[in-house]
Simulated assay, not measured.
Amino acid sequence: MNVRRLIPTAAVAAAVALGLTALSACSTSDAAESKNGDKLDVVASFYPMQFLAEEIGGTHVSVTTLTKPGVEPHDLELSPRQIGGLSDADYILYLKGIQPAVDDAIAQSGVRNSVDAAKLTTLEDHGTETGGDEHGHAHEGEGAGADPHIWLDPVKYAEVAKGVGRSLEKADPNHAADYRTNTDALVKKLDALNASYRAGLRTTTTKTFITTHSAFGYLAERYGLVQEGIAGIDPEAEPSPARIKDIHSIAEKSNATTVFFETLASDKTAKTVAADTGLKTDVLDPLEGITAKSKGDNYIEVMQSNLAALQKALGAK
């Protein structure tokens, strides 16, 4: 995580106080006026949470996201207005561990219906700093910790969706039946996506893919693949010379064909490694945000594009 850009807890507390003072000063504040009729006012931390809130909430929610399109979520800086405005939300959906500045702000907000998606499934350690072994586990001496990228595994994402649905039912019981219906519909889409990945990646020439951002540990483990990350969970982290050397050896031994990069971060490292190893480059989107460069308009479409990219890189048969 890019600790250089984190907002200190003291600053968060001060911003909350500032925001609350401004809100109490005028009953017709911007935050109050943003209430959309009888809709539940939902704040999502970044795109994967926004998608769940919109799909499950449907017409009964008004969703805003703290991370605007094109902003790398790990680097997000919250404004005092954003931090202070959190206290007006009816419901907050976030994923602890991705954005510490957001985690601190939510802890200070006092909103009762604050849901941490990380608690709706089981997090695992995939050695996200430098890559893992053939089972997705960290090698001795490598950086370790709970991998937060649960949304890139359709099965885990479906587990989270079910938990979000239940929490929305409690937050807004008058529309519980609709939330259940919407949750069931989304889970069916995710089940179909999972089936597509299983079928599409069952038989491949190689199981190894190289990526600049170690975000795909859950996906690799789910479908029997091997993720070799050049850097850690911070997509703009500089890899060590030793890791670059390792990647060269891994690419040769595993018959890897492609170095993947993403849309929200620089492709410089991927292109450098690819040039040194004679490999191709392509996009594997960690789906932390949707922009004009995204290969799809929503989570399902981009995940389908990711599948096609993996099939090509791995030599799917």
Rank of each mutant, 00 (worst) to 15 (best):
A105S: 06
K162L: 14
D133S: 07
Q108E: 15
D125Y: 05
D116E: 05
H126F: 11
G70R: 13
H126I: 03
W151R: 04
R166Q: 15
G131T: 07
A89S: 12
H135G: 13
K96W: 03
G97Y: 03
L152F: 10
K68S: 15
V164C: 09
H137K: 13
P100T: 09
G136L: 08
E129M: 14
G132D: 05
S79N: 09
E142P: 01
G136Y: 07
T122K: 13
A146F: 13
D125E: 05
G145H: 10
A107H: 09
D125V: 04
E72M: 11
S109H: 11
S79C: 10
G143S: 10
A144M: 11
Q108K: 14
Q82L: 05
D90T: 08
L93S: 02
H126G: 15
E129Q: 13
D153L: 04
K156A: 05
A117E: 00
A105Y: 02
G141Y: 09
S167V: 00
K156T: 00
I83H: 08
G127T: 04
Q82S: 14
G110P: 04
T122Y: 02
S87W: 06
H126T: 00
I98D: 07
G97K: 03
L123H: 08
K156E: 01
R81D: 15
I150P: 00
Q99M: 12
A117F: 04
Y157Q: 02
A158H: 03
G165I: 02
K96E: 12
D133I: 12
P148G: 11
W151M: 02
L123R: 12
T122P: 01
H135I: 10
V164Q: 06
G143T: 07
S109W: 12
K162M: 12
V160N: 03
A107W: 10
E129C: 14
G131N: 06
Y94W: 12
Y94K: 00
R166W: 04
P100F: 09
E134H: 13
G127W: 05
E77Q: 14
S114E: 01
G84A: 14
A118K: 10
K68I: 01
K162W: 01
H135W: 14
L76Y: 07
A89I: 05
V71P: 01
V111W: 08
D88Q: 15
T121G: 04
A101N: 07
S167P: 06
L93N: 01
G132E: 03
D88F: 12
G85I: 09
G97D: 00
A118G: 14
D147Q: 08
A146E: 14
A101T: 15
H139Y: 12
R112W: 04
A118S: 15
Y157P: 01
P100V: 10
P148T: 08
E72Y: 02
A89D: 07
E134R: 14
P80N: 06
V111K: 10
E142S: 13
K96R: 15
E77T: 13
Y157D: 00
G84E: 08
G127D: 02
H126C: 05
T122H: 05
N113H: 15
G70M: 09
G145N: 05
E140G: 11
A117L: 00
A118D: 01
K119H: 09
H139V: 10
S114P: 00
D147T: 07
